[in-house]
Design a protein around this nucleic acid. Structure first.
Lengths: 181, 181
DNA sequence: TGTATAACATATCAGACTGATATATTATAC
DNA sequence: GTATAATATATCAGTCTGATATGTTATACA
């Protein structure tokens, strides 16, 4: 039962809350999940077909809409599969920050260039933090409306705390760059 | 000049400091760089061959060693290529934390399982933090021995700060899980 | 009323990269 | 003397990304 494809698990996770189209799944990835996970259409659509073939999800054409719209639902088998995966120990937590990579090799280009990367990083974080803070407010207000909200809040708090720490690091990093010999 | 393969850039970055074998490059990835980047043999060895073909690195058989050892050096063209890449804006900073993914879908399995994942995460971070703190000490002591050390320190400080924040989050997350309805 | 633009919706593919595996040698521990 | 760990290179099936293609419907605004 090992070697679960991550994309299958994420999709089933999203479908466990609500029925969705492939397009909507991608939107969830790009908004709610983007702070700790991502996926492309190139993996979503093939995975959806595969999940249906394996009986973990069902596909239904939306007749009410005028669009070519395929709505996916999780099956009982799919829910079992998701639960099994959720019980397995974590395989990998991975950070892939190009900013840190370029800073690590920064001596090759010097302080000025390093500063540019740090400030761009700082700008991106400052732009994203408000969305997380807004999510925190909403979730705190609706905590007892849905059991799932507590779990969402857990990940939002992670994001807020780390982003605030990133901003502190940016300050210190700029000092270290300027101050050091 | 866009679309630089990341693996090429990382290898050239490492070679810009010292000559290395493929095996040694992998070791650097698994120790120093692992906090913000990773790579497998399956990308390293083909990339090394490719870099030599493109004149960005040179390969030399080590005759002094009894092992089948290929030592790689960066060329002037390679150094130019690295510098060009270092000047380009960051394309992507990405977090891929399976722990957060499983917590997000945590309501499906409940608090007990969520707690297990948080505590496993906490344990991993606690185990890794000492290595970063040790690196910090070493780098602070040798800051004026090598210009590059300041840049290494920048990334180490990032790791220390975020890891400490992770540990704080773990505490709060456990409280939130237990306390909330 | 017309029409440009944004958003919705699905699909495919070359190329990058991982994780596993294979193979062989040399150093070290006991 | 020998088992084990570390050194060293190489390959590949399978996963996933980023780009691209294609078409439809809703919205803005003139």
């Amino acid at each position: 039962m090992a070697n679960e494809k991550k994309i299958d698990c994420v999709i089933l996770g999203l479908l466990s809350h609500e029925e969705l189209t492939g397009y909507e799944i991608k939107k969830r990835m790009d908004t709610t999940l983007k702070y700790f996970w991502s996926a492309s259409y190139g993996s979503i659509y093939p995975a959806l077909n595969d999940l249906v073939h394996r009986g973990l999800a069902t596909k239904r054409e939306d007749t009410s809409s005028k669009r070519n719209k395929q709505i996916y639902n999780i099956t009982e088998n799919g829910r079992d599969y998701l639960k099994k995966w959720l019980s397995l120990p974590i395989e990998k937590d991975e950070l892939r920050y190009e900013t840190l990579l370029k800073l690590f090799f920064g001596s090759e280009k010097g302080e000025e260039q390093a500063l540019i990367h740090i400030e761009a990083f700082e700008k991106r974080i400052k732009e994203e933090l408000p969305y997380l803070l807004h999510a925190e407010t909403i979730l705190n207000e609706s905590l007892n409306e849905d059991t799932a909200h507590k779990y969402y809040l857990l990940t939002v708090e992670f994001g807020i705390k780390t982003y605030q720490t990133y901003l502190e690091w940016c300050k210190e990093a700029k000092k270290l760059l300027a101050g050091g010999q």
